[in-house]
Design a binder for these strands. Sequence first.
DNA 1: ATTTCTTATTGATTTTTATCAATGCCATTT
DNA 2: AAATGGCATTGATAAAAATCAATAAGAAAT
Lengths: 192, 192
Amino acid sequence: MYDLFFLDFNSKVPLTQEEETVIKQYLTPKKLRKKQYLLQEGDVCKSIAFIEKGALKAYSVDDKGNEHIIQFGVERWLISDLYSFLTGEPATYNIDAIEDSELLLISKTAHEELLQKVPKYETYTRMNITGAFISMQRRLTSIISSPLEERYTNFAASYPNIVQRVPQHMIASYMGLTPETLSRVRQKMIRK
Amino acid sequence: MYDLFFLDFNSKVPLTQEEETVIKQYLTPKKLRKKQYLLQEGDVCKSIAFIEKGALKAYSVDDKGNEHIIQFGVERWLISDLYSFLTGEPATYNIDAIEDSELLLISKTAHEELLQKVPKYETYTRMNITGAFISMQRRLTSIISSPLEERYTNFAASYPNIVQRVPQHMIASYMGLTPETLSRVRQKMIRK
DNA sequence: ATTTCTTATTGATTTTTATCAATGCCATTT
DNA sequence: AAATGGCATTGATAAAAATCAATAAGAAAT
């Protein structure tokens, strides 16, 4: 249940056995069935979730009821509404499970105590957020500067596992397109 | 010359006098004239820059020679090609000065030694990157989910100083639009 | 087994945005 | 004072994407 988390942690910041034991005490396992919410817009985000198994999406919903996916999460990734988590403000995103999932939750108090007590946890956090920043910057660059086909190609090349596991209309949402448009872009590409 | 930097640092993580002295030794002041490069695509990004004065932009250039601005930076902000800085890979962004600017540079070795020697520097870094992540996430959400007018309104409300200081065609670039389109969007809004 | 739901595709049409081209303004330089 | 370059606006047209609507295939539920 904790395997992937510590695999990931150790790959970034090697831990002693004692440190692992301390950290483990702050983690709360949670299982989520497909379509269940981890977080609903308007609630305060109480935790950061490490994904041991499964797939989730974070998204906002506009006036017309359309979902706009801001982030996918699969094994070894973290998912959260970080702004709500850190400030205690109501969440602007929803998070739910695309597949049955197994998570490790880090609550606000756990997060704060870990930052205090385990210096390596701060390093781990810094590395995670840095990685997330860089990949989001890539995504943004691609959106503002690349033609559609290239954007899809890039995405598919960067996240082949997501393209396989997730329905196309969600990919379209993630790219800021309608499902119809993405379908047509793919047809064009296939014809080549 | 160092005032803003330590003002910002102390507001996030209070420092002792000794710590300030240590950190100061790792900072290199640099002045940049309008239009001068801090970084050119293809070069390795050698530093993170804290902006004491002025304004800069980070951008990529596409096949047709169009600039796509990924980030603006003004006083109290950091600017860099973080991926290049951290990995040593060639930069994919250019960074240059929109106005005459004064910077404090943190080199790679300075960054690494500071992370080692001054725990508060790691905290400061973590807070900075977290803030950058959250605002970029907002920007991305706005791009994939809001109509154009709203996006411009949001941007202008969030960064009034940038709207004032920076030519409109750069704002358009930042929003992923042509200057003509942004001009028309603004006309529509004014008429209301 | 059949019904329901989700998903993907396709076509016709409208809306949005980009492109191309021209103009005028203002600030700076000469 | 005239010339230059950077910038914003406007118009006409083309291209891209959204919308609306219909169909069909597959998976899941009853």
